[in-house]
Design a protein around this nucleic acid. Structure first.
Lengths: 417, 417
DNA sequence: GGCACTTCGTCCAGTCACTGAACATAATCG
DNA sequence: CGATTATGTTCAGTGACTGGACGAAGTGCC
């Protein structure tokens, strides 16, 4: 064998239409402003004849729509095209340690349904948790159906090592799960959300990264560049998702991004995982709260934004312990993120989850660590920034992942609504 | 914009043949034993008619050949197919810190030409080094041409951060290079090796990883599985290449795999890069030699295998300092590789370069570190093994990279030799 | 207001690649 | 030696893209 990774799928003549439709959809989605059929023809190299035929089919199918007045032009005015939000939608579900959530988004990126149920899931039997989450998913699926949307798939974000192929959560330490057969359980339950087909299982930080990479609507001129970043999602544990060239890196099994157990100092304290000096020991939510002298249960308390908001408030008020705790966490993040960036080569470290509101304090020591320890920082800087999405990141990332899959393989969507 | 990473290329009708030819080539290359036209038709879903047409063209073009005796069968005996080594070849060049090398390999994986020139390149002006390397490349290109081979491209492996798009070595600390315009320099020189088109520039560890992933010839039943590994290439510095699903991970710019500067202990000694406690400080060739009490110049001395062989000899003889030095290096590798594997999710850590002969001593502490620190090791073990290729890994990886590109886009090769 | 001009989108015959069934080929088996 | 079995090839047919011609829908100038 030469390279097992080589693209190996044949293209039948009947697939050509779908493939080229997908290419056009990607162009429309990635365009700086809505393109016309003629512009698409020039950009792709297809003839205007072909583009028209494909576009007409996609407009009829409810994937694209014509946007009205283009303003004064020389020559016949163009009918500009954009993605349509009227038909296709994706469903995302988040099984968090401290809450459940489900939502539906359409192709324009609009959130068309969203439901969140707070509540600690630790210690509950997995099938109880999955039942509640499935009910939530069914509820938003019904919400979407009521708006005339067709849910083309569901993606579930779970805090652990997920075997997507088998549909099993292999290990989720913070939930206390081991080898939970999620896909089979959901399949047994049925319901509206399952009607869209086999659910996609993914690590929650990976879906948050997909959400961060998702830029619905016309891209600003800057947004057109391919994105690459490490999204660090601080929750009860610390996870990460990696996007390179706009695409999620999944590793061999989708078990990458375990930044929480990257070594910061091997002679450091013992981590819950059994090793020593993992990042979680220094920058995990509970560790930072403890170091700051705050109540570790602040996050499960009232809806005030949880641990992130509490720490940010303390830091803003000048609390010395909080400031020192955040500086320490930032330094630890700097060491761990530097290791990751040295290996991965990404252009940015994005702080999400509880870290997002703490960027003013975590960012500087983190950035300093990157400058000092990342070789490629001498050639090209590594940006540090807060995630654009908040608590809905995982759910929207799930929806985005579903929609991305649908747009790349639009074959069965072309028939019409 | 939605996802800039989405596959965006349209497929013209004239591209269909080339695409499907590529799919067939990949099947032939990846087959457990040489497949017939009929078997390819079943495997791909194309009709026997189409497969025959495409295969005939590729046989005429010298990409495939029929392998003679199939042994007794029921029914008409099949004409089995395999990649042909008679026409297409790739050229790989290595600019190492302590040697230059160039080689040519054909589609069967056979090395058809190889030339190595030892010699320390540090302190020499880049254009002198490039001139010598280009001469070497021209020499093997002529060797290949003399055998009737058509060199379809060249890939250069360089020990540093390479900007492949611009054709520039941005930073190569161990050579003392900064912003060296390699592609432009080579283009100015011309010569037989340049005739194949613009050279591909890549980090040397990345090419070594490509070589490790390259399994020419019929795959054993086991070899059919997609490969994922981190190849750690210990030389003057420590680099790494990552392969997931059989494909090289390049990161945003091809600057990943800098394992040498992954943090092992931030309170450790200062590294040449300015940071503290990098892996190179603990497991770099010079550091290990010094800890073992061996002459740091052993590697540049006579051809005895260099530092790896010297350390292996000392360890085999029971030298306590050498054993302790290797154990320490193995532990440091364990910490750094654990960080990398936690982030990347690969199934194996492969030790190459000077590390390859030291696996008996480096392997156990490294494996112990992985078991202890890598979360996914509780679900799926992480293998530790020595690289299959020796000093020719970078050169063969370069040739493989060129051939891989040619087979994935066989359009212009289909015309015939 | 009319006419030239520009650009957009559509129509239509033509080419090319894959399909599917029938046919020819080349071995083994009884 | 003929039946059987599986491979590979021939040939008309379908479908998707091509490219030039044409109609459509605006602006700008006289």
């Amino acid at each position: 064998m030469l390279w097992h990774g080589a693209r190996v799928d044949v293209t039948r003549q009947e697939d050509l239409r779908a493939r080229n439709s997908a290419a056009l959809l990607a162009r429309v989605a990635g365009a700086v402003d809505p393109p016309s059929r003629a512009a698409l023809a020039v950009a792709t190299g297809l003839t205007r004849t072909t583009v028209s035929a494909l576009v007409d089919q996609m407009v009829a199918a409810g994937l694209l729509e014509e946007v009205s007045p283009p303003g004064p032009t020389r020559g016949r005015p163009a009918q500009r095209l954009r993605l349509s939000g009227r038909r296709v939608a994706g469903l995302g579900v988040e099984v968090g340690v401290r809450h459940l959530a489900a939502g539906v988004a359409d192709l324009t990126g609009a959130t068309r349904a969203l439901r969140v149920v707070p509540g600690d899931q630790r210690g509950l039997p997995p099938d109880v948790v999955l039942g509640r989450a499935a009910d939530l998913a069914d509820a938003v699926a019904r919400d979407a159906a009521g708006q005339g949307l067709e849910v083309v798939g569901a993606a579930w974000g779970l805090p652990g090592l997920v075997d997507a192929g088998a549909g099993v959560v292999r290990l989720a330490p913070n939930l206390g799960w081991r080898d939970v057969h999620v896909a089979a359980d959901l399949d047994r339950r049925g319901g509206p959300a399952s009607a869209a087909g086999r659910p996609v299982l993914e690590n929650e930080a990976a879906l948050a990264a997909v959400a961060e990479a998702w830029r619905p609507g016309p891209a600003g001129a800057d947004g057109a560049a391919p994105q690459s970043f490490l999204l660090v999602s601080g929750e009860v544990g610390i996870g990460a998702g990696v996007v390179v060239g706009g695409r999620l890196l999944r590793g061999a099994h989708g078990w990458g991004g375990e930044l929480g157990h990257v070594g910061v100092d091997p002679s450091g304290p013992v981590c819950g995982c059994g090793a020593t000096g993992c990042l979680e020991v220094y920058a995990g939510q509970d560790a930072v709260l403890a170091a700051a002298g705050l109540d570790p249960d602040v996050s499960s308390a009232a809806e005030g934004g949880g641990a992130g908001a509490a720490l940010a408030a303390a830091a803003r008020s000048g609390d010395a312990r909080a400031l020192e705790a955040l500086a320490g966490a930032g330094r630890a993040l700097g060491v761990a993120a530097s290791s990751a960036v040295n290996v991965l080569d990404v252009d940015a470290v994005v702080l999400g989850g509880v870290y997002a509101p703490l960027v003013p304090w975590l960012g500087p020591p983190l950035a300093a660590g990157l400058v000092r320890r990342v070789l490629r920082a001498r050639v090209h800087p590594v940006e540090v920034r807060a995630a654009r999405r908040g608590t809905d990141a995982v759910v929207l990332g799930g929806a985005a992942r579903v929609l991305q899959g649908a747009l790349e393989r639009p074959g069965h969507l072309l028939a019409g609504p």
